[in-house]
Design a protein around this nucleic acid. Sequence first.
DNA 1: AGGTGACTTAGTCGAGCGACTAAACTCTAC
DNA 2: GTAGAGTTTAGTCGCTCGACTAAGTCACCT
Lengths: 202, 202
Amino acid sequence: MSSAAAAIQENRARTEDRFLDAAERLLVEVGFAGITTRRLAEEAGANHGLVHYYFGSMEQLYVRVLERFTARLIARQRGLYSSDIPFAEKWRQAMHYLVTDREYQKVWLELQALAWNRPELRSRVARIHGEWRALLREAFGPVRERLDLDIPLDALVALVMTFNEGVILDRASGITAGHRELRDWTEEWLRQRERRAKRSGR
Amino acid sequence: MSSAAAAIQENRARTEDRFLDAAERLLVEVGFAGITTRRLAEEAGANHGLVHYYFGSMEQLYVRVLERFTARLIARQRGLYSSDIPFAEKWRQAMHYLVTDREYQKVWLELQALAWNRPELRSRVARIHGEWRALLREAFGPVRERLDLDIPLDALVALVMTFNEGVILDRASGITAGHRELRDWTEEWLRQRERRAKRSGR
DNA sequence: AGGTGACTTAGTCGAGCGACTAAACTCTAC
DNA sequence: GTAGAGTTTAGTCGCTCGACTAAGTCACCT
């Protein structure tokens, strides 16, 4: 591809990202139901005709927003759980995100709400969820062995995923009761299990 | 109040319920963002002018739908956890609802999504959530003592609530992986703890 | 029989929506 | 300097929306 053509594609990608970034900000601010072509264009600092020019339709724009966001979500999860640090440190970092990352969580929830009533987007969410689960199975398999946890791996991963999602759902409604206690307890529990595993030579 | 006036109020309540029932069905079928005055009236088998006549505005109708639904939710939770049966049976029933009650859960999630961007509705959701938590503290306090669980009550209740919500959120996207394993494990774990508590005379 | 209030219908209205486009602008290549 | 492709603007269009209402119906009370 010529450098001119590459520059064209780069410029196009940059403009598309401006719209996608704007869409994420609006997801946080007003939710998916409050986004219109005009409001989006205003937030992106461009003309509303460009939404059709670059994305074809609002539905297509939603598809792109979901794809881009979920790719980042999986990359972040992968960066978190596949790193070379001790598992307890990974857990502490995951728990920190869980009780602090409000805007990120709002985007994710609004996208899921958007997807509930759109089969194509639901499939994407389900697929991403499957990738996340595979990541956690890889991360928790060895931990379950080492700490001698008496719970099937599928149940353990489902528990970790679902309580994480429950905390995110709570926070979207301004609910934080019990979250810190839960986080502190998981960290302390993990610490004790690690200590016990060390003593028994695992 | 005269019997004529009572009949009027009863008729009014009946008509309001027709609209509120219709709204819940549409929450399941198309989600909150897909509900309009005309679609709602059609689903209720009435004229769309009645939405304004009975509720004043769509926003007021949403308030009523949320109030009615959350009152039923708390009543059902109360009926479940405050009954006189053994705790393990309560738990089994709660878990059964969790993996079967699809439409009920869809209504609840759509209402929460509706509430995320409306302060008045968010407050109602947060309040309902507080009532649910208080119910679970009452139910789990004695269980925690009896089974000698090494977890603070607030953390335990938060864990139970958040994983329940996480399962509901998953199911809205068609995700059920790990749910049965998790349910089975919780029931088996509870059975073993109950047995152990019995042996040590608690 | 008539008055009154509750209820319902069949609209109307202004606003905003998504989709789309003609025209203009910009940049690059020749 | 011009042609062409990409980009952007400033709209337009038909449609649907929520809010609202005039007019009609019904039931009850006097």
